[in-house]
Design a protein around this nucleic acid. Structure first.
Lengths: 210, 210
DNA sequence: GTCTATAGGGTGATAGAC
DNA sequence: GTCTATCACCCTATAGAC
């Protein structure tokens, strides 16, 4: 289960290994993944090279192929890793009061993106020419969206357009912050205001229907 | 002046040329620029290569250096070109009614981005590792923002935070559309609603102050 | 699993002939 | 201005020794 979380559940199609070996392997994989994040934070997503990555973990480039089938598989693992971190850090439940709950969640999400702009870029844009996430890598991403959908449904927000609006509002604040002042707080200060605008709009819509 | 618009106003530091030669040169530069847009639309921004570009205009790669000092200079020219197109196509004036004017402008802006996602990516994100626009290339971008600022001021919207909010709302709709359904209209249908939310919020704020 | 060696490509940029 | 030739790198991926 821990191995699954680390993205090393390929035991089925790999030669049989003792659990000891498997744990070692998973640890190395995680180490490579962490080094990859460091490098893209330093030089940008598209500038990642296997030579640099291998050097960072004290290997030669070909050795990486024991852990990842290709560079695209590495991007896949990073993409899934980003969403696993999001699932671990972002809890869409919260206070009963929808307004307060959305503000808390929005702020956490904003900080999550702002804390690691490159991670956000990989998760929410398509910044590597020639690569897009494989179906496997999409799994945690789908789970993340589904969890959000359920949390909104529990608060009576079920219209898909309302959800699209919510994602647009948040991604707007984040994308402006990352593009114009990465790591800063110029758009962070607008998070509460945007949440109020959103809830006001939804409430008005509901009243008009009655 | 036309030459300035085409981004070839370097006559000062270049050898003296007849206006005939200069026009020829500007035309070739424009042709290269157009070919560059075609290529990045096909293969992505970061995948542009000088060899491909030269082939597209019937040259060899080194000949491009007669027109652009470096690959970064080419990205600079494209960046400025994008904003010049925006200045030509997007008119922030409009009906007296602020609500209607903002809706018209927002829709035009959304369509401008959606019509050419790669252009929007170059203008509003930082998608090429190792490159950022030079101060020169920024000029049309600054003019674009300044024009927006003036149009809002003419409607009584002067708080910089209100402008930041506006850019966040629009860039959110655009970024979701481009990332999830490039060229489609899933978020286009929310443009009017977001404008209404924005104007409602500003009006409420003004009333509270009285 | 890790290595060396290398295949088989790619890249931006420059020198110098014409 | 355009060319050929080339420099000096870069890259991902594989073969095969250990």
């Amino acid at each position: 289960m821990l191995l699954t979380l680390l993205g090393v559940s390929n035991a089925d199609r790999e030669p049989r290994r003792s659990s000891r070996q498997e744990a070692r392997r998973a640890a190395t994989r995680a180490e490579i993944l962490e080094a990859a994040w460091e490098l893209v934070r330093e030089h940008g997503l598209a500038a990642l090279s296997l030579r640099d990555l291998a050097a960072r973990v004290g290997m030669r480039a070909p050795s990486l192929y024991s852990y990842f089938d290709s560079k695209h598989a590495l991007y896949d693992a990073m993409f899934a890793d980003g969403y696993r971190q999001a699932l671990a850090e972002l809890d869409p439940s919260g206070p009963d009061d929808t307004r307060r709950a959305l503000k808390a969640w929005a702020r956490t999400f904003f900080d999550f993106c702002n804390a690691d702009p490159v991670r956000a870029q990989l998760m929410f844009q398509r910044p590597v020419p020639g690569w897009e996430p494989s179906p496997d890598a999409y799994a945690p991403s789908v789970e993340f969206l589904e969890r959000t959908r359920r949390a909104f449904a529990a608060r009576g927000i079920t219209d898909p357009q309302d959800l699209d609006l919510w994602t647009a509002l948040l991604s707007g604040l984040v994308s402006q912050q990352l593009a114009n002042e990465p790591g800063g707080d110029r758009w962070a200060r607008l998070v509460d205001r945007v949440c109020d605008m959103y809830v006001n709009d939804i409430e008005t819509k509901h009243k008009e229907r009655q």
